Computed example of a mutant assay.
Amino acid sequence: MSEIATYEIRRSEIETYFDRTASDAWKKLTSDAPLGRIRASVRAGRDAMRASLLAMLPEDLSGRRVLDAGCGTGALAVALAKRGAEVVAVDLSPTLIVHARDLAAGEGLSAPIRFESGDMLAAAHGRFDHVVLMDSLIHYEPDDAAAALASLAARTNGSIAFTLAPKTPLLALMHRAGRLFPRGDRAPAIVPVAIDCFRDRLEAHPSLSGWSLGAERRVASGFYKSHGMEFVRS
């Protein structure tokens, strides 16, 4: 099966989960609402990783066009807009996009952020100075994740910051146990990735010549394990 076909199948599964099954759970996870111990650890980890990805970008983004690919409830898009960026925030879930748009309006940031539901890789979104994918590639096989980065790199002038689920024995055990969420709203399987192998994959990818790996940061917060990476146009 081709990379395009497997990406599209997985994209459909993710859209169903986030838009029809667990949108309320993710709204709560990304809010200030009280949470149980497991979900609180996920929230804390996501907050730390969001800060890490933002640290990979210029503090002043005035005049820069930035794609928040897989924006969810929009916290990262809001942070980018506060730095002066023109943000295109894309998510597969129309439900989460409506919620994100409302939250941005509450922050007075409707103008600099364009929220859209659909495929984060769509060429119609145009070119960007920077792209951020926070936990947007973690449900895809390594070949599909690398192909997605190559697709975005073709339309990116500066850098791409992204996360992967690092392949560790503990992470594999937790995901086999399926304990990140209750059974009724469990996410599509997260694909743990061997980071060293993925680095080699990117460096050897024929469509990614002229790009190099930059800063990296791993976050481990209870049930949240994530590895952030920066990819920079040379």
Rank of each mutant, 00 (worst) to 15 (best):
Y140Q: 06
Y140S: 03
Y140N: 06
E141T: 07
P142K: 11
D143F: 02
D144T: 11
D144P: 00
D144R: 05
D144Q: 14
A145N: 10
A146G: 04
A146V: 02
A146C: 05
A146N: 06
A148F: 06
A148Q: 04
A148P: 06
A150W: 02
A150Q: 07
A150T: 08
S151W: 12
L152N: 05
L152C: 02
A153F: 10
A153N: 08
R155V: 07
T156A: 06
T156D: 11
G158Q: 05
S159Q: 11
T163M: 07
T163C: 12
T163F: 06
L164T: 02
P166E: 10
P166K: 02
K167W: 08
K167M: 14
K167T: 04
A172R: 15
A172S: 15
L173Q: 09
L173V: 09
L173D: 14
L173W: 14
M174Y: 10
M174P: 00
H175K: 06
A177V: 08
A177L: 15
A177F: 15
G178W: 03
G178T: 01
G178V: 00
G178Y: 04
R179A: 07
R179H: 01
L180G: 00
F181N: 05
F181A: 01
R183S: 09
G184Y: 00
D185Y: 13
D185W: 06
R186M: 09
R186Y: 01
R186E: 01
P188K: 01
A189L: 12
I190A: 07
I190E: 10
P192S: 01
P192V: 05
V193E: 01
V193G: 00
V193I: 15
A194D: 15
A194F: 03
I195F: 02
C197K: 14
C197F: 09
F198Y: 04
R199P: 05
R199D: 14
L202P: 06
L202F: 03
L202C: 12
E203M: 07
A204V: 03
A204P: 08
H205S: 03
L208S: 10
L208D: 07
L208M: 11
G210M: 08
W211I: 00
